[in-house]
Design a protein around this nucleic acid. Structure first.
Lengths: 202, 202, 202, 202
DNA sequence: TATTAATCGAGACGGTACGTCCGGTCTTCCA
DNA sequence: TGGAAGACCGGACGTACCGTCTCGATTAATA
């Protein structure tokens, strides 16, 4: 990723280039995916040159990494005293984040795996892991509040939450209306709870 | 994709070329992903020429499509009279298929989406859609057998089944032991059923 | 060139294919030269297939050879009793032959030499050599008739005759009016003769 | 052809690449002709890449054009006060030039004509036209010196000079010994002059 | 204030892949 | 058998991209 500009003498780097380039990379990763990402095209659209890009990021994979790492992940939701509503809120935030142009193709790139291990690890560390931990904590709070069963299989339950969205995306079906609440309801019941207001399938 | 050989005149296509090429494509898609797939390298490894490949598949995307579409999808499981066990079996087959070297990166390529709309559509049609329908039918049979609730949200429940696997893969965590049975159990309960034998989380 | 159809059994070759193909080859050699001559295009335009062409002529060079060899070369002029007029007639015939669309590029192909030694040799044997011998004999008859000098350098004089045309073609200048008679006059004088009627340069 | 390097910014082109490539092109044009000229092979032999070549010359025809246009034309012979000897000298220089490996096939390519009009026009302009003018001037000086006839047909006489060589090449006969002097003698007599020393045919 | 060192823009360089086309050979069906 | 159809190998063409490099012209911090 972008090395911190050397402290000493010489012309300092133009920080606006970093911004414009990363924004452009995100836009293109979103619309065309990693494969079709052309450094030359990015440079042109960002109003700079390939050299300026390669000076900051050693190669294309690192450039994409940097762009992803900067994604303004929907920060930790303020926890309320209702774990079920927290789950709905978390999933709504997730859907908002992943449904935005950048979202899906990025996930695809990540699942490509071996293309660039570092790229994937960075994404997991910055985006996936924190979300999983937030989800996990919500379910544990539901358990602590006595709403969920003792022996509920939380490890797997966590994967159901966001997994539902991936499966729908892969199938090419639009996320159904009220998706977040309906998933939360299913997961809640799967763990032995009773969702307060039953979301109605359409 | 490979046009069906015209019935009449002309030298017939060498069917072994189709086989060797597609096998090679699958091997390379698995190990390096779509991006690094080189038609020339495939031709060389398959002991043929680029021309013979382009005669069959108009471009690289279509070639990959064909290779994927031929994946020996774990065929429709023979339905037993126990819907829950059918669900476990279906998920086990899914896991076997998607865990094989080819599996994950292929899914990633598909989620890249707009890289090649046709590629994705072909994959959905040949692989994803049939699986979703099989899952859906299993849940409906559970419902018909009185094991699942009337108003169960089957639309979303279907997405939970395979989605769990995608979420785990994206997080980089190995699918937990007994994954298929545990997911089935959660989904069953989410739909109001009671899994016959409670799978124990580890 | 086209092998004589085998005498014996089996379906006889369609002679109209020979005609149509060679005509097409001549047309294309004329308009685009040997390089751009595509066997497939010839076959299509002649309403037949590549195989039928390759059955008759072993390769492209031979095909072109055959087309050239069939050029209705202005056959041996009926010798008159006036060698000078015979020379004019021969050169006029030569100019007619070589000035027709096919002519020039063919000469170029021949001078390419090493492209296909056989092609060149065939052309020399069928077209160039006979013409040189006819020219030589005309000059010798002029010598025998006492019109040309004893020690005239006939070897080189022969090359002047047609060479004049090549030089003009290479320079891109149209062959001057009355070209045949004017060349004949110059060659005649070069060999010590006096052309009966002086052709006037324009 | 190679665009003049832009004055200003950017890494300047490596001029040695121009040199090496054009030399290689000339060598190959000479030995194999235009048709067999492979850009990839040229690049390899010249120690560079196809991209570097296509950056300079838009296509193969333009590349060949450039190579020909750079041919070190046998410069204007220093005129003596003996026009006949000047003619011999000019023809000797011509023979030396055209007999060098490059010579004949190049002429063949040029006579192909319509393959690439620009290619041919460039060659005429740089090589053929200047030579024709030098020959013409020599003959005119012979005329001015009273050695040649008033009404000599110089237009055609010029074509005899080099044409003799082309005709011999086309016939596949080696240029006879003393060729230049013998042609000069014939042309001189054709124009009414008397060559100072009669060259003896062998 | 003059020097100096790093950046910026521009673009060439070696590689490599793409998709198209052609030449010459072959293999099959049909007349 | 010959003709039509078309697949086969090999290889060239012209385009596009990647990551590296060399230029001249800027632009700040330092001497």
């Amino acid at each position: 990723m972008a090395a911190a500009a050397r402290s000493g003498a010489g012309r300092p780097r133009d920080p606006s280039i970093d911004r414009r380039v990363l924004a452009e990379v995100r836009r293109r990763l979103a619309s065309d995916g990693y494969e079709s990402l052309s450094v030359a095209a990015v440079a042109a659209s960002a109003g700079t040159t390939r050299a300026a890009i390669y000076r900051r990021w050693p190669d294309k994979a690192d450039l994409a990494t940097a762009a992803i790492a900067e994604l303004p992940e929907a920060g930790p939701q303020p926890a309320t005293d209702d774990p079920f509503e927290d789950l709905v809120a978390e999933l709504t935030a997730f859907q908002r984040g992943v449904s935005r142009p950048d979202g899906v193709p990025m996930v695809g790139t990540m699942l490509l795996g071996s293309t660039d291990a570092l790229l994937v690890e960075r994404y997991r560390e910055r985006v996936v892991r924190p979300r999983r931990e937030r989800l996990r904590r919500i379910l544990e709070r539901g358990h602590a509040a006595g709403e969920l069963d003792e022996g509920a299989d939380l490890d797997v339950a966590v994967t159901l939450c966001t997994g539902s969205w991936y499966a729908a995306a892969l199938a090419g079906v639009p996320p159904p209306p009220q998706w977040a609440r309906r998933v939360a309801a299913l997961v809640w019941r799967a763990c032995g709870g009773e969702p307060p207001v039953e979301a109605q399938p359409t």
